[in-house]
Write a protein that binds this DNA or RNA. Sequence first.
DNA 1: GCGAATTACTTTAAGCTTAAAATAATTTTC
DNA 2: GAAAATTATTTTAAGCTTAAAGTAATTCGC
Lengths: 171, 171
Amino acid sequence: MDDRSAIPLDSETKVAERPADHETELRLWLRLLTCTTLIEGEIRRRLRDSFDVTLPRFDLLAQLDKAPSGMTLGELSQRMMVSNGNVTGLTERLVEQGLLDRRASPTDRRAQIVSLTAEGRRAFRSMARTHEDWIADIFSGLSAAEIDTLMNLLAKTKASTRKAVTEREAP
Amino acid sequence: MDDRSAIPLDSETKVAERPADHETELRLWLRLLTCTTLIEGEIRRRLRDSFDVTLPRFDLLAQLDKAPSGMTLGELSQRMMVSNGNVTGLTERLVEQGLLDRRASPTDRRAQIVSLTAEGRRAFRSMARTHEDWIADIFSGLSAAEIDTLMNLLAKTKASTRKAVTEREAP
DNA sequence: GCGAATTACTTTAAGCTTAAAATAATTTTC
DNA sequence: GAAAATTATTTTAAGCTTAAAGTAATTCGC
């Protein structure tokens, strides 16, 4: 007999039938997803209304702002956790908009290095200041201690996820 | 002279220069986003590899599984937190796939009610069981207590976000 | 060095997603 | 009960996103 279901997690009378229902984890995942969707949607809306920029473009600019000498497309794609083709398209539009510079790598003729133009940097910095205030506003219902705890638990979640992914890839 | 670096992180002696840098909240948001992106990507990949289904379709089926008598498109769009047009398209494809039924509302001629077909219900239930195990696996690095704390902090985050959104809409 | 494997990127096709405008039906207001 | 406002949905155009296939350059193995 499988007695795992007899462990009094929240429930009282789990019958043997179903091995172990991981409803708790599922609810956690749904809540995590809801939070992110909610915040992401709000930020997307504000970026569009205030600066007429999309969130993916803002994200790309943010990555480049952290790398003054630029970055290859592959590096961008890794840091943004999106596909290569995605970065190709985003970059094209931002170059066209005059916010990005694109040049061939001096050491590798396959690679392209993109970096912010002066205008791109100026535009991003200006948006970033407001963006930071929005985020602070959104999290203002949490105390410093709660933010700290949340940070740590999310770090654990990230580690746990990576482990699950890795172990499945190389079993 | 730039004395920002001399200011203790959350001190109250904010010098005039830079009002308040909310770097902590920004880092929290980025971490939250990373977690979700990581998990979402993995689940999307597994759903495709194992069941040849997309995540949005799975999500729509999940909503309908919870409403045995069906739901209007508008209700679906609200619960899934996506646009109306999005639901229109997803529904079309799922009806075409034979997983959804779609009928006019008897009380409101503008509205359509969609519900799972027998096949749709069977297909979803089968996928859902595996899906739940994946989620449990992904969160397996967290203890029950940690999961509980995380749940509560995310509830707070959600509430704080809704407050920020609402107050901006109706100031 | 030479062929094989890998790497960086682009292209393609399909699907997802949104905002905004349009359509049609219902409800509210006077 | 007619006009005005709201609601439910669809359509449209633009952009995002991915997986998979393709191209070109580099590195590896010998």
